[in-house]
Structures are given as C-alpha cells and as structure tokens.
C-alpha cells in the first residue's frame, strides 16, 4: 500500500478563496466571442435597425476603405498621428513638470503649501468644464488642446509622485544617512528610486485620463484626429465609421498600457516583491 502511494503522490494545495490561480483568459475569450456573435446575430437579423448597428463585416470593410482612402479629408495615419502627437506632447510636458512638482511637495513644506491650493481646486474638475476657457484664451489650435490634456494629466502624476515620496520608510532614510549619504545622494540614490513605482502608476493613470480628454477635446474644433473622425462620422450617421474610430482608440490605449507595463518590468522589477 505504501508502495502504491509512493508511486503516484497525491499533491495538495491550501484551499483558496476568491479568483484563485486558474487562468481567466479562456473565459474572457469565450465572452468576447459571444459578444461578437450576439452583435452579428442582432445586426444580421435586423433586430436593431441597420442605421444604429452595422454588421461586423460592414465595419471591417469600412475600416479597410478608411485605411485605403482616408476619412474626412485626411488619411487614417494623419488622424492617428494628430491624436498621438497631442497626447504624447501633453504627456511629456505633464511628466516633466509633474514629477519635480510632486517630489517637491513630498519633501518641502513650502512647495506643499503653495501647490496644494491650486491642485486640490482644479483636479477634481472634469477637463471639459474648463475646455471653453482654454479655447477662449488660446484659440482653437493645438495649443488649447495640448494645454487641456497637460492639465488633465498633470494632477495624477503630481499626486502619485508626492505619495511615492511620502511612503518612503524613515528607516531607509536613516540607514542611508548613517552610511554617510549627503542630502543630494539621499535624493538621487534613495528618494527618487523609492518613489519610482508610484510615479509609473501615476503616469499610467494619467494616460488613461489623457485618452478620455483627448477624444472630447477633438470633438470640438478640430480638423484632424481620431475624435474628429468619430465626430464627423456621427454627423452622417455613419455608425460603421464610428465603430472603426472606437476600435482605433482602444488599440492605441491598449498599446500604451503594454508599453507602461514593459517599462514597469524594466525599471521596477523589485516592486511588490519580498
């Protein structure tokens, strides 16, 4: 009997709770397939009027023609690059200003006191509430859009950089000081890397906010951009082209999130371990 139990050991595991370790990916794939099938069925059988819901095949063929011939007086690449240009330049400005501002707020009483008032006032506001002001002040060109996006993305980056600095354990600071660190060495070798995981999380949140704000900004006063493409398609009740626009945004946002995840793996592989 003991021989038999040695031959095929019964492996066991602690009873779990919640989602557990088994992959959820197959379930998600089946769900996605079911949604596509339902879409196809509903649009094909005419259950929903064709004007409101095109069939999947139509969306694919419109996507193909937009790819070949462009849409609303611009090629697809011109629309996509206009949007990417706006979000990336706003992200760069927001990162360049937000990280130093947030770190200063985490370290310095004056910086915290001065910056807290404007940031706490404006960041809960929906960006579309101050978009009209941006347009009145800076016109309908790129400046107002990039400024709006920068403001929307600045707050999450500042707040996360500040949180990153404030979560730094005091023992870590004391350890560095008793190893002879100067104030500057303490900053570059301990404070900055300690805050990096939170800063990266802040940038990821900021990019999400950025996409939401970008499309809204392009709905008003633009001649290029994915948001503009969706808006002009909706004027002609071209729901198929609207679907294509949405799919492009989803793909771009997904690509951004993949890049951020890769950056996190590269820069803070130690985060959340040990």
């Amino acid at each position: 009997m003991s021989d038999a139990s040695q031959a095929v050991p019964v492996t066991v595991k602690m009873r779990g709770f919640g989602v557990g370790e088994k992959s959820t990916v197959p379930i998600s794939i089946v769900t996605a397939a079911a949604i596509l099938a339902a879409w196809w069925l509903v649009s094909r059988t005419g259950l929903v009027a064709h004007l409101f819901l095109p069939t999947p095949a139509e969306v694919v063929s419109v996507a193909h023609s937009i790819w070949e011939d462009g849409y609303a007086n611009a090629t697809l690449w011109e629309h996509v690059s206009a949007s990417l240009m706006r979000i990336l330049s706003a992200a760069l400005i927001a990162i360049a200003l937000g990280i130093p501002a947030g770190i200063a707020m985490g370290l310095n009483r004056w910086a915290k006191g001065i910056l807290d008032a404007p940031i706490e006032f404006y960041w809960p506001l929906p960006p579309l509430a101050y978009l009209p002001l941006m347009i009145i002040w800076m016109g309908i060109g790129e400046a107002s859009k990039i400024c709006l996006l920068t403001l929307a993305m600045f707050a999450p980056i500042v707040l996360s950089a500040q949180a990153g600095v404030r979560s730094l354990p005091v023992e870590r600071v004391n350890a560095a000081l008793s190893l002879g660190a100067t104030r500057w060495q303490l900053f570059t070798d301990v404070v900055l890397p300690s805050a990096l995981p939170e800063i990266l999380t802040g940038i990821r949140i900021a990019l999400g906010v950025g996409w939401g704000t970008l499309v809204a900004a392009e709905l008003i006063a633009a001649t290029r951009g994915i948001g503009y493409m969706i808006m002009s398609a909706s004027h002609f009740l071209a729901t198929d082209a609207v679907f294509v626009g949405i799919a492009i945004i989803a793909a771009c946002a997904f690509a951004f999130s993949l890049v951020m995840r890769a950056l996190e793996r590269l820069l803070v592989p130690w985060h959340g371990k040990g």
Binding site: P169, E171, R172, N174, A175, S178, L179, D189, V190, P193, L196, V268, W270, H271, K273, G274
Partner: peptide, 14 residues
C-alpha cells in the same frame, strides 16, 4: 562613523 543595523530590513530593493 557609526554603522547601524536595523531590526527591519532597510536594504534598497533595486
């Protein structure tokens, strides 16, 4: 000039 060893691990994880 005064080296300190803490109860809590204060190594830099990166």
């Amino acid at each position: 000039d005064r080296g300190v060893v803490f109860q809590k691990d204060t190594l830099l994880p990166w």
